[in-house]
């Protein structure tokens, strides 16, 4: 199965998951209003989505040159991370039964794609502008800081460092997924775990705005927890990466929620406007 086939598989499964979950969580009523006012909803969504797309674009450019650049300017912290945490990941792997590994494999690939896309789509359809804006900003913060870390720190994941103890579970269980992940990311970009930071971001925002989609909140928290665990169960990330990812998520959610940051941003904006 080539990269394209795997990609199509993921997109197909993702669309199915999204259509089912949107119709349940957003609900037929809100969906009907959304369809009636689709152009208006999309117009509102353009700005935050464009910001996110811009950040992702810069990201992919940096990622292309980033690996070579980080070998020049970056520090190899693999050994340091290992000295911090030792064989925690190996232990987590050894206590996870085989059938759960399969579940975590799906959580890592499909669950992750789903948890990223769902809040954006749901808040567009339900006209939750604040949630949409905050989600997009928080993603942008995660990606930007994560990218800087990838440039500054070179680290190989546990599966690359202690093959005797940690099994490369994702690629052994689903070798086809590696074609996809190696397209998206280099194997030295593990600190921090963006899988962790972005899913935790979604979970925290879902908790904050829990009255918006009451059914979504517990589901998001459960799914985020699964994704966080999966990064370690599958031998891809160190516990250190996961902790750093969770801290990054907390920071991003604080930054988009904080009034002080908001006033700072608006002051910058007015200063910028005056300078123009």
């Amino acid at each position: 199965m080539g990269v394209l086939a795997v990609f199509i598989e993921v997109v197909a499964v993702l669309s199915l998951m999204l259509s089912v979950s949107l119709s349940i969580i957003v609900g037929p009523e809100r969906l009907r209003t959304a369809v009636a006012d689709l152009p208006g909803r999309l117009r509102v969504a353009v700005k935050p989505i464009a910001l996110l797309a811009g950040v992702l674009l810069i990201n992919s450019v940096v990622r292309n040159v980033g690996v070579d650049l980080s070998w020049i300017i970056g520090t190899n912290i693999t050994e340091f991370i290992f000295s911090l945490e030792g064989t925690v990941v190996a232990t987590i792997q050894s206590i996870t039964p085989g059938w759960l590994t399969v579940y975590f494999g799906y959580a890592y690939v499909y669950g992750y794609a789903f948890i990223l896309v769902f809040p954006l789509l749901a808040s567009i359809l339900a006209d939750e502008r604040r949630h949409l804006r905050h989600t997009a900003f928080a993603y942008a913060i995660n990606y930007t800081i994560g990218m800087c870390c990838y440039l500054l720190f070179i680290a190989y994941g546990p599966r690359n460092y202690m093959p005797a103890l940690v099994e490369p579970a994702l690629f052994d269980t689903f070798p086809r997924f590696q074609l996809l992940t190696s397209e998206v990311n280099a194997n030295t970009n593990v600190f921090p775990s963006l899988h962790t930071s972005l899913s935790v971001t979604v979970a925290l925002l879902a908790l904050r705005d829990r009255e918006m989609f009451p059914q979504w909140t517990p589901f998001a928290v459960f799914l985020a927890a699964s994704i966080v665990l999966s990064t370690m169960v599958l031998g891809i990330h160190w516990a250190t990466d996961v902790i750093a990812g969770a801290l990054l998520a907390t920071f991003s959610v604080w930054a988009v929620s904080s009034d002080r940051v908001a006033s700072l941003v608006s002051r910058w904006q007015s200063l910028y406007a005056r300078l123009r």
Binding site: M1, P168, F171, P175, R176, Q178, L179, T181, S182, N187
Partner: peptide, 16 residues
């Protein structure tokens, strides 16, 4: 180029 040996073997098995 293939990221790891397990996906390389998967490509062989799938006739890629």
């Amino acid at each position: 180029f293939v990221g790891s040996d397990s996906s390389a073997v998967a490509l062989i098995v799938d006739d890629e």
